[in-house]
């Protein structure tokens, strides 16, 4: 068995006195689809943000493809990663945000082209071709010249997915990507994610409140509670016969609400 795609090793994250994640250990295999569920404030978003290097960790190491991400080897010792190191390793990871974070002054196509041109150094023509293909794939072939303000929420989120994919990441992170959408627009985004999962070699880690989708889509579901993984397992097991009392309570509360 090769090394995991992502490994959180004893990762601790604190904000002041608040310990948000307490010695988290989590391995994610290549191409695995993992859903993260749990109550508000349990640290789900924080897990993704740490892996995207948007947050520094207080303790532990995050590995990507067997290489330390949060640290680097220097004279035989592990030291906190430099900006240069981060920029190199971070390229393997892409993220889609709850509130899209599209660049409002650029068209859908320009949003997708910006990073391939300026980070990967692709010639404009090639970047444009790649971006156009991706926009076609997410069903927005006819919206390439539209600005974000001219798009619906679901369309914006699909542009954001195409934009992240344009960097050819190996790991894609999704943080409640349908939470800011009107209910009737959720399906179109989930369809795109579903298609990504089946047609591409991608490791996917998603925080979601869509229990139905998590159940159908993921290989494994992790239930976070109080800064730890309280329970994890295949979706059938976790949703139908959870071992942990907290999981049961959480699921019944969510099912009642939804």
């Amino acid at each position: 068995m090769s090394e995991p795609m992502v490994r959180f090793e004893n990762v601790t994250k604190r904000y002041g006195a608040l310990t948000v994640l307490d010695e988290l250990n989590l391995d994610i295999e290549r191409n695995e689809k993992v859903s993260i569920i749990g109550p508000s404030g349990s640290g789900k978003t924080t897990v993704l943000r740490m892996l995207m290097t948007l947050e520094k960790i207080n303790d532990g190491v995050i590995w990507v493809e067997g290489e330390p991400m949060t640290h680097e080897q220097k004279n035989g010792a592990m030291v906190p990663a430099s900006d240069r190191h981060l920029r190199r390793v971070r390229g393997k990871v892409g993220m889609v945000f709850q509130h899209f974070n599209l660049f409002p002054h650029m068209t859908a196509l320009q949003n997708c082209m910006e990073a391939p041109v300026s980070v990967l150094g692709l010639p404009k023509g090639e970047a444009e071709e790649r971006s156009a293909e991706l926009l076609d794939m997410v069903g927005l072939g006819d919206k390439k010249g539209h600005y974000p303000i001219q798009l619906s929420g679901g369309q914006k989120q699909r542009v954001a997915i195409a934009r992240a994919l344009a960097m050819r990441p190996k790991v894609m992170l999704f943080d409640e990507v349908t939470s800011a959408l009107d209910p009737e627009l959720v399906g179109e985004v989930l369809n795109v994610i579903r298609q990504l999962g089946s047609e591409h070699d991608l490791t996917m880690l998603m925080v979601t409140h869509q229990m139905g989708f998590a159940k159908e889509f993921s290989d494994r579901v992790c239930f976070f509670y109080g800064g730890k993984i309280a329970e994890q397992g295949p979706p059938d097991k976790l949703f139908n016969e959870p071992d942990n009392e907290r999981t049961r309570q959480f699921l019944s509360a969510v099912l009642e609400a939804g």
């Binding site: 995207m52 948007l54 990871v93 892409g94 899209f100 974070n101």
Partner: peptide, 19 residues
């Protein structure tokens, strides 16, 4: 969120400022 998206796309700092 614009900063976060720029980091997630690995844009350099100067590019993030200028573009």
């Amino acid at each position: 969120g614009q900063w976060e998206a720029s980091i997630a796309l690995n844009l350099s700092r100067s590019r993030t400022w200028s573009r």
